[in-house]
Nucleic acid binder design. Structure first.
Lengths: 208, 208, 208, 208
DNA sequence: AATGAATGAGCGTTCATTCAT
DNA sequence: AATGAATGAACGCTCATTCAT
């Protein structure tokens, strides 16, 4: 067992640092100066691992997607039996995602802005549109399978267009989420979880 | 009637040009160089009218909100009688907004990104949070009054929480809207209107 | 008797304002922006009265010299009878100069820096060297005549080179004065008067 | 021994160039354009070595003081035996300082203005007040020890306040020195040395 | 693998000045 | 006598990138 820092370690370390910075300040506002300061590496070292700032962005994006995709609950369909269990699963999954984020952000603050990160990334490189859409589709799938579970246990009227329900719930979540970013809450994590919980309640109230 | 260019004309002209640029490239990516090129004015002239880039942003923002707020349909409650009339009113309103935009954008391209504009503006100046929220609230109100009209004519079950319906529909719209930006459609306006139409259909299907 | 503001009034008003600014911030650091703000006039108005910033400097300089030259005690030779009367005359003259300054500076602060003003003025326009030297020569003359008075009343050994004494005392004063500017005294006027008093004492002690 | 240009070489080279420019034109009038032209380096390169223009000023100032402080005559007290030896020591010291300066200024012109440099530096950064005062105090000390030497050899009446004499002579020198700057002499060095010589003569004549 | 010296274009901003009104 | 719209050059500074070591 050796403590020697491998090239991969350094690359990953740069990616983590860059992700943290991108999420909190936005891609445009992160400079090599910032990266140097936060990584403790020289400009040359960073250029040795990544060909350009855009390269960093793309790599960070992939890194982010990989991290975000890791903690997938295997089969919501088998878990969700009724609305309370759906809600619990959803909130637990989100909590887990937050913990993942916090770990990524150095455990300190959760002052990130995913939306800005996505938008800037996509403006800089159109290739990133596809993975973002895929990520969204994954989340919609997760919801759809949950609805399937509900239906199986008679908690959702048969014949409902589950795919449509899932998509709409997802957008409602997204919209409600973005609202938090416009506000200046103290405890971002709590705000998010509250919004998720309320939105779920509202949703089921709405579809009766 | 005179053709003399007044100071206000120039200010408005700068604001229009800046709005166009901000919407298509984002605040960060618009430089005084761009503004000079597009307005035909010198840097000094622009600074004569606006104290700083941030001042331009704030002024553009107010200008944008004023423009967006002008074409308000007076009373959706009186107009909406059933779902088709709701849908027609909504789409007509959106079409009108698009025309307003297109006029603003010089009639040429509709390659704008409202979301990025809002996010960057707010990141640059927290005072802009409030007007954005107000604008959103106005749109939600519009929807709520439409639901009231529906209810009055028996097209919506009595006792429904109309405010909740309105908010959720708004978020669904927002989410669906943002999806368009991630895609690379040829005819942005048609894409938007289609999405609005589909989303409305989905919504009413969903709440039965 | 009329209250109408004449052109001369405005010119003088600009000069006073400019002098105040030059003395407190230095020529280089005073912009037309500053002049506009402090005079309440427009750029064009200032340019109407003075052809350029250098023109303002030269005019201000003449204005300053005229003001400084106005309060000349007519004949120190007739007044100075002994060292105490010399000291009194000198300090009174300086006090009078300060009052003149304070009036000029709007009665408020005495945070001026004559030395910087002279140096910058001269660097900008070599023609200003001569009047500065003349002003200095006037002050030296004042001292020389005082020494003449002392000698006449037997308070100064006959045969002393009064011109040399005057010049040296003047330089000592200048040096001591400049020292004040390097320090950050609270009460500049008191500091100056103390230094003058001490320097005079030292001087007479020195030449026995 | 290698001819490789090290980072320190470049830093020192920038400092030398900046000092030269500051002394001849004043801090305010020296731009990065000037620095680029005179050093042959790019703006970015200069910024790589110094964080800001103020940083350059402070560093130049320290560099100047270090250079000025290097050529200290060890013990004037042991060397000065009579007025001629005092005068010789003083003029030799000044000549040595001039040579140092000339070397610094590239051997070419001696069109510097120490006074303006000090004033501007101090106005830009109050921390520089202290070292300037210390430098002045060193020169006064030098004079005081010379007087001690004179006294020891009976060339100065016992009981004279040597400290006071030194301070006053220093200010006379300063005043006389500054006069040179107001004039437009052809041979600055000769002018300075003449003034020093005359002032010393005058001084000893004055205190008899 | 990593350093940091150097580049050159671009940034937002301030400046003194001109001129039509 | 006075306004203020407009100019264009210059300012200090930051940026992503290159490259010799």
């Amino acid at each position: 067992m050796t403590l020697k820092k491998t090239a991969d370690d350094t690359k990953t370390f740069i990616l983590e640092t860059a992700l943290r910075l991108f999420l909190s300040k936005g891609y445009k506002d992160v400079s090599y100066q910032d990266l140097m300061k936060k990584t403790g590496l020289s400009k040359g070292a960073i250029y040795h691992h990544f060909a350009s700032k855009e390269d960093i962005l793309v790599s960070v994006f992939e890194f982010f997607l990989k991290s975000a995709g890791e903690n997938k609950t295997p089969s919501p369909e088998g878990i969700v039996k009724d609305i309370p269990s759906f809600k619990k699963l959803f909130l637990d999954t989100k909590k887990e995602q937050f913990n993942q984020f916090k770990k990524m952000m150095g455990g300190k603050d959760l002052q990130f802005n995913k939306l800005l990160f996505f938008l800037e990334a996509i403006m800089e490189n159109k290739k990133l549109i596809e993975p973002v859409e895929k990520l969204m589709q994954q989340e919609i799938s997760f919801l759809e399978q949950s609805f399937k579970g509900l239906e199986k246990h008679g908690k959702l009227a048969k014949g409902k267009n589950r795919s449509l329900l899932a998509k709409n719930l997802f957008w409602m979540m997204q919209g409600a989420e973005s609202m938090i970013l416009f506000k200046n809450g103290k405890d971002l994590e709590k705000d998010f979880l509250n919004v998720y919980s309320d939105t779920l309640d509202d949703f089921f109230k709405m579809i009766k």
